[in-house]
Structures are given as C-alpha cells and as structure tokens.
Simulated scan of single mutants.
Amino acid sequence: MTELRSEWDDVGLASRVWERQTPDGHRVDLRVHVLRGERLVDLTALRDFLGEYHERDPAEWHLNEFPHDDGAGLHDDVQAFWLVEPGVAVSVLTLPEFSESLLPTARSIRADNTDAGQ
C-alpha cells in the first residue's frame, strides 16, 4: 500500500493505492481517495468534480445509486463515491476484473477511517 497526497482544483486528495507486481512492472488494483474541499457541498457537486478530474463525459458516464452508511452514493462498474459530510468525500476505484468487490469494499469504508493523509 502506498499513501499519496495531491490537490486538484482546490480539492485535496489523500490517497491509498494498492498495487501488485506483474511481469511487466506494477499494476494498481485499488485506489481509495479521501477528498476535501469547500466545493464538495453535495453528491451532485462531487459527481461534477470527479467527472472533471477523471475527464468523463457527463452524457456517457452512467451512474447508479447505492446505499452507504454515510448516505447515498453513486457508482459505475469501477468507481464508487459518496459524500461523508459537506466538504469531505470518498472515492473508490478498482479494475474491471474486480468490479464484484467494488461495492462491498466501498461499504466497508466508514467515516471514522477516512482520515488518510490528514
């Protein structure tokens, strides 16, 4: 596991990355980002930020709702995200071959363990 910190468009990201060695180098299997920023006021603002950050076309980014203990979240096949509270959000990304574990992994993350990189 590797911990990273970055900032993009006034949102701080504290990230944990799980990777494995492959014959060709390394491959990232899972990324968990804790996002902090004033612009993250609701789930719509979080979706808009992540769409810009990941360069997703809003018309082609099909998301479904999922329940999380912190509130409603959104997901596709490889990413799940939700607002912990205004200004704090979590995003979980994985590879398509691990899509079955995406929502169970996301639901296992609780507000009391989202202090990565604080």
Rank of each mutant, 00 (worst) to 15 (best):
M1K: 10
T2E: 12
E3D: 09
D9Y: 07
D10E: 15
V11P: 06
G12M: 10
G12S: 14
L13F: 11
A14L: 06
A14G: 14
S15N: 02
V17T: 06
R20K: 13
R20V: 14
P23K: 06
D24N: 11
D24L: 13
G25E: 07
R27P: 01
V28P: 05
R31L: 10
E38T: 13
E38V: 11
L40F: 03
V41Y: 00
T44V: 12
L46G: 02
F49L: 02
L50T: 03
L50H: 00
G51A: 12
E52A: 13
R56S: 00
A59H: 13
W61R: 05
H62G: 03
L63Q: 07
N64W: 13
F66K: 10
P67F: 05
P67Y: 09
D69E: 15
G71T: 06
H75M: 08
D76R: 02
D77K: 10
Q79M: 13
Q79F: 02
F81Q: 05
W82H: 06
L83T: 02
P86C: 08
P86S: 07
P86Q: 02
V88P: 01
S91C: 06
S91F: 00
L93Y: 10
T94E: 01
F98Q: 14
F98L: 15
S99I: 04
S99G: 10
S99K: 13
E100P: 04
L102M: 03
L103S: 06
L103F: 04
L103V: 04
T105N: 09
T105E: 11
A106R: 04
R107E: 11
S108Y: 12
S108K: 13
R110F: 12
A111W: 06
D112H: 15
N113I: 12
T114Y: 03
A116W: 14
A116G: 06
G117C: 07
G117S: 08
G117K: 08
Q118A: 13
